[in-house]
Computed example of a mutant assay.
Amino acid sequence: MVNNSKILVTGGRGKTGSRIAKRLTDLGYAVRTADRGTSAPGSTNEHVTFDWYDETTYEPAIKNVDSIYLVGPLAVMDPSKMMVPFLERAVEAGVRRVVLLSSASVPEGGPVFGKVHQVIGQLVPEWAVLRPSYFMQNFTEGHHGAQINSDGVMITATGSGRVGFVDADDIAEVGVRALIDEQPHNTDHIITGPDSFSYAEAGEIIGAAAGRTIQHVNISTEELAAGMMKFGMAEDYAHFLAGLDEAIRLHGTEDQVTDTVQRVTGRPPKSLKDFAIAHASHWKQN
Protein backbone atom coordinates (compact mmCIF):
# COMPACT_ATOMS: atom_id res chain seq x y z
CA MET A 1 0.00 0.00 0.00
CA VAL A 2 1.30 3.45 -0.83
CA ASN A 3 0.65 6.90 0.54
CA ASN A 4 -1.18 8.22 -2.54
CA SER A 5 -3.94 5.63 -2.23
CA LYS A 6 -7.33 6.74 -0.90
CA ILE A 7 -8.68 4.94 2.14
CA LEU A 8 -12.36 4.99 3.07
CA VAL A 9 -13.10 4.96 6.79
CA THR A 10 -16.73 4.17 7.53
CA GLY A 11 -18.02 5.04 10.97
CA GLY A 12 -15.70 8.03 10.80
CA ARG A 13 -17.03 9.52 14.05
CA GLY A 14 -16.92 6.24 16.00
CA LYS A 15 -14.48 5.06 18.66
CA THR A 16 -12.19 3.24 16.25
CA GLY A 17 -13.03 4.98 12.97
CA SER A 18 -12.14 8.46 14.24
CA ARG A 19 -8.85 7.21 15.63
CA ILE A 20 -7.96 5.30 12.46
CA ALA A 21 -8.79 8.28 10.25
CA LYS A 22 -6.61 10.62 12.33
CA ARG A 23 -3.71 8.20 12.47
CA LEU A 24 -3.81 7.57 8.72
CA THR A 25 -3.90 11.31 8.06
CA ASP A 26 -0.93 11.87 10.37
CA LEU A 27 0.95 9.21 8.39
CA GLY A 28 0.27 11.04 5.13
CA TYR A 29 -2.50 8.91 3.65
CA ALA A 30 -5.46 10.36 1.76
CA VAL A 31 -8.54 9.57 3.82
CA ARG A 32 -12.26 9.84 3.13
CA THR A 33 -14.54 9.43 6.13
CA ALA A 34 -18.15 8.35 5.77
CA ASP A 35 -21.14 8.10 8.07
CA ARG A 36 -24.68 9.39 8.44
CA GLY A 37 -23.62 12.65 10.05
CA THR A 38 -20.97 15.28 9.53
CA SER A 39 -17.25 14.72 9.86
CA ALA A 40 -15.60 14.32 13.25
CA PRO A 41 -14.80 17.57 15.10
CA GLY A 42 -11.47 18.98 13.97
CA SER A 43 -11.15 16.61 11.02
CA THR A 44 -9.72 17.97 7.78
CA ASN A 45 -10.44 14.81 5.79
CA GLU A 46 -12.79 14.57 2.87
CA HIS A 47 -16.17 13.43 4.19
CA VAL A 48 -19.25 11.98 2.52
CA THR A 49 -22.67 11.07 3.83
CA PHE A 50 -23.09 7.32 4.04
CA ASP A 51 -26.15 5.37 5.11
CA TRP A 52 -26.34 1.58 5.02
CA TYR A 53 -30.08 1.90 4.32
CA ASP A 54 -29.58 4.20 1.31
CA GLU A 55 -27.74 2.53 -1.58
CA THR A 56 -27.44 5.86 -3.40
CA THR A 57 -24.74 6.81 -0.85
CA TYR A 58 -22.56 3.82 -1.71
CA GLU A 59 -21.01 4.98 -4.97
CA PRO A 60 -19.76 8.39 -3.74
CA ALA A 61 -18.18 6.63 -0.77
CA ILE A 62 -16.24 4.01 -2.76
CA LYS A 63 -15.25 6.15 -5.76
CA ASN A 64 -11.45 6.14 -6.28
CA VAL A 65 -10.91 4.09 -3.12
CA ASP A 66 -8.69 1.02 -2.88
CA SER A 67 -8.95 0.26 0.86
CA ILE A 68 -11.84 0.38 3.34
CA TYR A 69 -12.15 0.30 7.09
CA LEU A 70 -15.58 -1.25 7.41
CA VAL A 71 -17.93 -0.63 10.35
CA GLY A 72 -21.36 -2.18 9.88
CA PRO A 73 -24.78 -0.83 10.83
CA LEU A 74 -25.58 -0.72 14.52
CA ALA A 75 -27.93 -3.10 16.32
CA VAL A 76 -28.77 -5.24 13.27
CA MET A 77 -28.84 -9.01 13.70
CA ASP A 78 -27.96 -9.80 10.07
CA PRO A 79 -26.05 -6.88 8.54
CA SER A 80 -24.68 -9.19 5.81
CA LYS A 81 -27.80 -8.44 3.78
CA MET A 82 -26.48 -4.90 3.32
CA MET A 83 -22.76 -5.37 3.77
CA VAL A 84 -22.15 -8.18 1.28
CA PRO A 85 -23.75 -6.33 -1.68
CA PHE A 86 -21.79 -3.23 -0.67
CA LEU A 87 -18.54 -5.21 -0.67
CA GLU A 88 -19.34 -6.69 -4.07
CA ARG A 89 -19.88 -3.20 -5.48
CA ALA A 90 -16.71 -1.93 -3.80
CA VAL A 91 -14.58 -4.66 -5.36
CA GLU A 92 -16.13 -3.96 -8.76
CA ALA A 93 -15.16 -0.30 -8.28
CA GLY A 94 -11.52 -1.20 -7.61
CA VAL A 95 -11.28 -1.77 -3.86
CA ARG A 96 -8.61 -4.36 -3.05
CA ARG A 97 -8.33 -4.32 0.73
CA VAL A 98 -10.99 -4.31 3.46
CA VAL A 99 -10.55 -4.34 7.23
CA LEU A 100 -13.75 -5.31 9.05
CA LEU A 101 -14.58 -4.43 12.66
CA SER A 102 -16.19 -7.37 14.45
CA SER A 103 -15.87 -8.71 18.02
CA ALA A 104 -13.85 -11.25 19.98
CA SER A 105 -17.18 -12.73 21.10
CA VAL A 106 -18.36 -13.32 17.53
CA PRO A 107 -16.63 -16.17 15.65
CA GLU A 108 -16.42 -16.56 11.90
CA GLY A 109 -19.85 -17.65 10.73
CA GLY A 110 -21.45 -16.54 13.99
CA PRO A 111 -24.25 -14.00 14.46
CA VAL A 112 -24.19 -10.36 13.36
CA PHE A 113 -20.78 -9.66 11.75
CA GLY A 114 -19.82 -13.32 11.81
CA LYS A 115 -21.54 -13.87 8.47
CA VAL A 116 -19.57 -11.04 6.86
CA HIS A 117 -16.38 -12.42 8.38
CA GLN A 118 -17.20 -15.79 6.81
CA VAL A 119 -17.34 -14.43 3.26
CA ILE A 120 -14.92 -11.50 3.28
CA GLY A 121 -11.96 -13.60 2.16
CA GLN A 122 -13.97 -14.83 -0.83
CA LEU A 123 -15.08 -11.33 -1.80
CA VAL A 124 -11.97 -9.21 -1.29
CA PRO A 125 -8.39 -9.97 -2.43
CA GLU A 126 -6.81 -8.54 0.74
CA TRP A 127 -8.56 -8.45 4.08
CA ALA A 128 -8.45 -8.55 7.86
CA VAL A 129 -11.06 -8.84 10.59
CA LEU A 130 -10.55 -6.99 13.88
CA ARG A 131 -12.07 -8.90 16.79
CA PRO A 132 -11.47 -6.76 19.86
CA SER A 133 -12.50 -7.57 23.39
CA TYR A 134 -14.59 -5.02 25.31
CA PHE A 135 -13.40 -1.42 24.97
CA MET A 136 -11.89 0.33 27.99
CA GLN A 137 -13.71 3.41 26.70
CA ASN A 138 -16.98 1.78 27.80
CA PHE A 139 -15.98 2.89 31.30
CA THR A 140 -15.82 6.55 30.25
CA GLU A 141 -18.54 6.64 27.61
CA GLY A 142 -21.97 5.10 27.18
CA HIS A 143 -23.99 3.39 29.88
CA HIS A 144 -21.11 2.16 32.07
CA GLY A 145 -19.58 5.63 32.17
CA ALA A 146 -22.94 7.15 33.06
CA GLN A 147 -23.64 4.52 35.74
CA ILE A 148 -20.24 5.03 37.35
CA ASN A 149 -20.64 8.79 37.49
CA SER A 150 -24.25 8.81 38.70
CA ASP A 151 -24.31 5.85 41.11
CA GLY A 152 -20.79 4.44 41.43
CA VAL A 153 -21.84 1.13 39.90
CA MET A 154 -21.50 -0.97 36.75
CA ILE A 155 -24.43 -3.23 35.92
CA THR A 156 -23.83 -6.40 33.88
CA ALA A 157 -24.87 -10.04 33.72
CA THR A 158 -21.26 -11.26 33.56
CA GLY A 159 -21.01 -12.47 37.18
CA SER A 160 -17.37 -13.13 38.00
CA GLY A 161 -16.46 -13.74 34.36
CA ARG A 162 -13.33 -12.00 33.14
CA VAL A 163 -12.74 -9.74 30.13
CA GLY A 164 -9.52 -8.73 28.35
CA PHE A 165 -10.50 -5.04 28.23
CA VAL A 166 -8.64 -3.19 25.48
CA ASP A 167 -8.00 0.48 24.69
CA ALA A 168 -9.59 1.77 21.48
CA ASP A 169 -6.24 3.37 20.62
CA ASP A 170 -4.69 -0.10 20.48
CA ILE A 171 -7.55 -1.49 18.38
CA ALA A 172 -7.16 1.42 15.99
CA GLU A 173 -3.41 0.92 15.66
CA VAL A 174 -3.92 -2.73 14.69
CA GLY A 175 -6.50 -1.53 12.17
CA VAL A 176 -4.08 0.99 10.70
CA ARG A 177 -1.42 -1.68 10.24
CA ALA A 178 -3.96 -4.00 8.61
CA LEU A 179 -4.84 -1.21 6.19
CA ILE A 180 -1.35 -0.07 5.23
CA ASP A 181 1.10 -2.95 5.75
CA GLU A 182 2.55 -3.97 2.40
CA GLN A 183 1.77 -7.62 3.11
CA PRO A 184 -1.97 -8.17 3.55
CA HIS A 185 -2.88 -9.80 6.85
CA ASN A 186 -5.62 -12.05 5.42
CA THR A 187 -6.63 -13.23 8.89
CA ASP A 188 -8.66 -12.23 11.91
CA HIS A 189 -7.06 -10.53 14.91
CA ILE A 190 -8.37 -11.12 18.44
CA ILE A 191 -7.32 -7.91 20.20
CA THR A 192 -7.08 -7.64 23.99
CA GLY A 193 -5.35 -5.68 26.67
CA PRO A 194 -2.48 -7.22 28.68
CA ASP A 195 -4.75 -8.67 31.40
CA SER A 196 -8.27 -9.98 31.90
CA PHE A 197 -10.41 -8.80 34.81
CA SER A 198 -13.88 -9.32 36.18
CA TYR A 199 -16.05 -6.22 36.31
CA ALA A 200 -15.65 -6.18 40.10
CA GLU A 201 -11.86 -6.12 39.67
CA ALA A 202 -12.14 -3.43 36.99
CA GLY A 203 -14.25 -1.38 39.40
CA GLU A 204 -11.52 -1.66 42.05
CA ILE A 205 -8.87 -0.48 39.57
CA ILE A 206 -10.97 2.46 38.36
CA GLY A 207 -12.02 3.32 41.92
CA ALA A 208 -8.41 3.36 43.11
CA ALA A 209 -7.52 5.83 40.36
CA ALA A 210 -10.59 7.99 40.92
CA GLY A 211 -10.51 7.91 44.70
CA ARG A 212 -14.01 6.50 45.11
CA THR A 213 -15.79 3.18 45.50
CA ILE A 214 -17.09 1.64 42.27
CA GLN A 215 -19.03 -1.59 42.56
CA HIS A 216 -20.19 -4.21 40.10
CA VAL A 217 -23.87 -5.09 40.28
CA ASN A 218 -24.69 -8.43 38.68
CA ILE A 219 -28.20 -8.99 37.31
CA SER A 220 -29.79 -11.79 35.33
CA THR A 221 -29.52 -12.09 31.57
CA GLU A 222 -33.27 -11.55 31.32
CA GLU A 223 -33.13 -8.36 33.39
CA LEU A 224 -30.29 -7.01 31.26
CA ALA A 225 -32.16 -7.68 28.01
CA ALA A 226 -35.34 -6.12 29.42
CA GLY A 227 -33.42 -2.99 30.38
CA MET A 228 -32.03 -2.63 26.86
CA MET A 229 -35.47 -3.06 25.33
CA LYS A 230 -36.83 -0.43 27.73
CA PHE A 231 -34.48 2.05 26.07
CA GLY A 232 -35.69 1.11 22.60
CA MET A 233 -33.40 -1.70 21.47
CA ALA A 234 -34.97 -4.38 19.29
CA GLU A 235 -35.79 -7.56 21.20
CA ASP A 236 -33.57 -9.86 19.14
CA TYR A 237 -30.53 -7.62 19.46
CA ALA A 238 -31.10 -7.02 23.17
CA HIS A 239 -31.13 -10.77 23.78
CA PHE A 240 -28.01 -11.15 21.63
CA LEU A 241 -26.08 -8.57 23.67
CA ALA A 242 -27.33 -9.93 26.99
CA GLY A 243 -26.33 -13.39 25.78
CA LEU A 244 -22.75 -12.17 25.36
CA ASP A 245 -22.71 -11.31 29.06
CA GLU A 246 -24.13 -14.72 29.87
CA ALA A 247 -21.42 -16.41 27.81
CA ILE A 248 -18.76 -14.45 29.71
CA ARG A 249 -20.28 -15.65 32.99
CA LEU A 250 -20.86 -19.28 32.05
CA HIS A 251 -18.18 -20.05 29.46
CA GLY A 252 -15.41 -17.47 29.89
CA THR A 253 -15.69 -16.37 26.27
CA GLU A 254 -13.80 -13.11 26.86
CA ASP A 255 -11.29 -14.44 29.39
CA GLN A 256 -8.30 -14.31 27.07
CA VAL A 257 -5.15 -12.29 26.55
CA THR A 258 -3.43 -12.20 23.16
CA ASP A 259 -0.16 -10.76 21.88
CA THR A 260 -1.86 -9.18 18.86
CA VAL A 261 -1.17 -5.53 19.73
CA GLN A 262 2.52 -6.15 20.41
CA ARG A 263 2.95 -8.47 17.43
CA VAL A 264 1.16 -6.30 14.87
CA THR A 265 2.10 -2.80 16.05
CA GLY A 266 5.40 -3.36 17.82
CA ARG A 267 4.16 -1.73 21.02
CA PRO A 268 2.55 -3.22 24.13
CA PRO A 269 -1.17 -2.69 24.76
CA LYS A 270 -2.24 -0.20 27.41
CA SER A 271 -3.16 -1.68 30.77
CA LEU A 272 -6.46 -0.96 32.47
CA LYS A 273 -4.56 0.58 35.38
CA ASP A 274 -2.78 3.04 33.07
CA PHE A 275 -6.08 3.80 31.31
CA ALA A 276 -7.77 4.47 34.66
CA ILE A 277 -4.98 6.76 35.83
CA ALA A 278 -5.10 8.69 32.55
CA HIS A 279 -8.88 9.15 32.79
CA ALA A 280 -9.24 9.47 36.56
CA SER A 281 -10.68 12.98 36.33
CA HIS A 282 -13.63 11.60 34.40
CA TRP A 283 -14.87 9.66 37.45
CA LYS A 284 -13.81 11.94 40.30
CA GLN A 285 -16.68 13.33 42.34
CA ASN A 286 -16.84 17.04 43.00
Score class of each variant (00 low, 15 high):
residue 106 V to M: 05
residue 159 G to C: 06
residue 190 I to K: 03
residue 119 V to F: 11
residue 171 I to K: 01
residue 165 F to N: 04
residue 151 D to V: 11
residue 123 L to P: 08
residue 105 S to H: 02
residue 113 F to M: 15
residue 103 S to L: 07
residue 167 D to L: 08
residue 170 D to T: 09
residue 115 K to F: 08
residue 202 A to W: 00
residue 167 D to C: 10
residue 118 Q to V: 10
residue 167 D to R: 08
residue 125 P to V: 14
residue 190 I to V: 12
residue 98 V to H: 05
residue 118 Q to W: 12
residue 174 V to D: 02
residue 153 V to A: 13
residue 176 V to T: 00
residue 198 S to V: 09
residue 112 V to C: 06
residue 173 E to D: 08
residue 157 A to I: 06
residue 121 G to K: 13
residue 187 T to H: 01
residue 138 N to Q: 15
residue 128 A to L: 12
residue 165 F to K: 01
residue 161 G to T: 03
residue 158 T to G: 07
residue 201 E to I: 09
residue 144 H to N: 13
residue 113 F to A: 10
residue 172 A to S: 08
residue 157 A to D: 05
residue 169 D to A: 13
residue 181 D to N: 15
residue 182 E to L: 10
residue 164 G to S: 04
residue 104 A to K: 06
residue 135 F to L: 07
residue 111 P to M: 14
residue 168 A to V: 05
residue 190 I to H: 03
residue 168 A to C: 10
residue 149 N to T: 13
residue 118 Q to P: 05
residue 162 R to M: 09
residue 178 A to I: 06
residue 158 T to M: 10
residue 142 G to A: 15
residue 118 Q to E: 15
residue 110 G to F: 08
residue 199 Y to D: 06
residue 96 R to Y: 01
residue 122 Q to A: 12
residue 145 G to T: 07
residue 159 G to K: 12
residue 120 I to G: 04
residue 139 F to E: 00
residue 162 R to F: 09
residue 169 D to G: 09
residue 160 S to V: 04
residue 121 G to R: 12
residue 170 D to N: 13
residue 182 E to V: 10
residue 179 L to M: 02
residue 136 M to R: 12
residue 127 W to P: 03
residue 170 D to M: 12
residue 122 Q to N: 13
residue 117 H to L: 10
residue 105 S to A: 15
residue 199 Y to G: 06
residue 194 P to D: 01
residue 176 V to Q: 03
residue 129 V to G: 13
residue 113 F to I: 12
residue 125 P to F: 15
residue 163 V to E: 00
residue 172 A to E: 05
residue 178 A to S: 09
residue 107 P to C: 11
residue 195 D to F: 11
residue 177 R to C: 02
residue 142 G to Y: 14
residue 126 E to P: 10
residue 149 N to I: 13
residue 126 E to H: 13
residue 161 G to V: 03
